[in-house]
Nucleic acid binder design. Sequence first.
DNA 1: TGATTTTATTTCGAATTCGAATTAATATAA
DNA 2: TTATATTAATTCGAATTCGAAATAAAATCA
Lengths: 136, 136
Amino acid sequence: MKDLKTITILFRAVDRFQSEISSSVNEMGLSLTSFMALEALYHKGPINVAQLQSKVLIANSSLSYVIEQLENKDLIHIESDHHDRRRRVCSLTSKGMQIMNEVYPKHVRDQRKRLDRLNHDEEIELQRLLKKIGLD
Amino acid sequence: MKDLKTITILFRAVDRFQSEISSSVNEMGLSLTSFMALEALYHKGPINVAQLQSKVLIANSSLSYVIEQLENKDLIHIESDHHDRRRRVCSLTSKGMQIMNEVYPKHVRDQRKRLDRLNHDEEIELQRLLKKIGLD
DNA sequence: TGATTTTATTTCGAATTCGAATTAATATAA
DNA sequence: TTATATTAATTCGAATTCGAAATAAAATCA
C-alpha cells in the first residue's frame, strides 16, 4: 500500500462517533472531552490529573480548564494527594455519579448500535489492528 | 460485545496519528486542519467550500476561518463559481502547490511507517471494518 | 544537608472551533 | 412573474484548545 487512504477512512469513522456523542452530551451541557473525563472517573474511580489526561487525549493545559468546569458544575471533586502534594486527585461527586448512572447505559446502547454492524470476531479483529497501529 | 472498549482503542489510534501529523505540520506554521484542507485540494484539485468541508471534518464556520488563514498565507486562492455565485471555489496557489510537492511525500513516508505495521491484507481488512462502522 | 533536576499541574495569551444567526444567491411554487 | 423555500457560505461572540512559561512539590545529587 502506498497511499494514506486508511488514515482518511480512520478519521472519518472517528468523526462519526465523535459527532454523535457530542450532540448527545451537548444536550446535557457537556462537551465531548468533559464527558470523556467523567467516563474515565466513572470507570477508574478517583485518579489524578495525569492519569485522567491519558484517557481524555487533550493537552494538560486544556484539561485544567475542563476539570475546573466540571468542578464548578459540582460533577467532580478535586483534592490534593496526601502522599504527593503536587498531585491532584479527581473523583465523581454524588451528583456526577448520579448523572453517569442515568446517562451512561443509554450512551453504551447508542454507540453499540454502530459497533454492532460488526460481528463479534470482526470487532475483536478491529481492536487488534487498531492496537497495532496505535502503539507509540 | 457489551462495552465500548473498541471506541477507546479507536480514539487512541487516531490521536497518535493526529499528534504526529500536528507536530510535523506545526513546524511549518500550519494547523492539522489547515494541512488537511491543503491535502484535499492537492488531491481533488479546485473544489468549493462544501466539498472541502466534507474532507476536513470541521464545522463550516470553522472552515471559513481556516481558508481565510490559508488565503492570507497565499497558499490557496478563492473565487466565486460563475454558474452558482453562492459557491466559492478554492484551489492551491503555485506557492501552495510547491509546498505540498515538497512536504507531502515525506508526510506519506512518515505515516506509512505506522501503517506498515499491518501487512497488506490486514490494512485492507481494517479499511473494510472502519468503513462499516463509519457509514452514516 | 543544601543545590539541582525532575515531575505534576496551572496560568496565560493566542489560536482554533463551535453553534446560531445572517447574508446572499438559486430553486421551487403559486 | 413574485413569493417562498432551500442552499452555500460567512459573521459573530462564546467556548474550547493549545503551547510556553510559571509554580510548586518531590526526587536526586553532591
